[in-house]
Design a protein around this nucleic acid. Structure first.
Lengths: 127, 127
DNA sequence: GGCCTATTTAGAGGTCTGTCAATCTAGACA
DNA sequence: TGTCTAGATTGACAGACCTCTAAATAGGCC
């Protein structure tokens, strides 16, 4: 499972705590790739199945049954999550086990967090 | 700006704190819609521009210049964000002002958060 | 080696998405 | 009323995406 190169890493994104300042084009492009990996119901469910599985990892065969999809399709979605730096897979004998890489999810989570309740006042219509 | 109906709300998602348990098909479908709205570099940058703008809101004309895109395209992206329940817009005179709705972002952020460092042990190969 | 199972890769088809040009709507103002 | 500006909507097109079937790869076992 030699994680092919076009993988995004949390370090490569390195975005400020939140949207307290505008994102650069590069940042937004990298972040969009990460969010795109999450923007599919099958991948979200795959992720939750892996993350919530005993031991923090799940074999492909463990999760395939939860879907009405063919093996190759599941494999495709796992690859997308892997290339987004969200999960990683390891072959052990006949089976391949996937586990969540928490760093990327943490990075995305932080990005979406409000820095503080710094004042969400609707602005007193100061014309 | 009568927010057309197919809007997702944080309440409608109501997912458990994190992926401590598998997502249902319905939850994953709703969440995927929300993440899909974030899965575009232009929309992410729009969001950061609005969120970081003085007063927490920005007029369309404030953000359009940051892009090499036509008005209709910007308008389209704003609509996607609006229908995802991530921003809301309000017309004031000639201009339309957008602001971030923090609830949806908070919901998504929480979803991606690890419940705790509950033990990321690689499992002692307990065959 | 030969066969079987688990998973990935390759290629194709149908659908969704981002973008644009053209057009339309809403408000301001003379 | 007419006109101007700010945004939104519509329709079209190219490229990306999800899914499948068919074929390939990897490891275990006889």
């Amino acid at each position: 499972m030699p994680k092919q190169l076009p993988v995004i890493t949390p370090e490569s994104i390195r975005c400020s705590p939140l949207m307290r300042e505008p994102l650069s084009e590069q940042q937004s492009a990298d972040l969009a790739k990460a969010f795109k990996a999450l923007a599919d119901p099958v991948r979200l469910r795959l992720l939750s199945l892996i993350a919530s599985h005993a031991g923090g990892e799940a074999c492909v065969c463990d999760v395939t049954d939860a879907f009405d999809l063919t093996g190759p399709t599941i494999s495709h979605h796992l690859k997308v999550l892997r290339e987004a730096g969200i999960i990683d897979g390891e072959r052990r004998g006949t089976w391949v086990y996937y586990r969540v890489l928490p760093d990327m999810l943490r990075t995305l989570s932080t990005l979406l967090t409000a820095p503080e309740a710094t004042e969400a006042e609707p602005v007193p219509a100061a014309t």
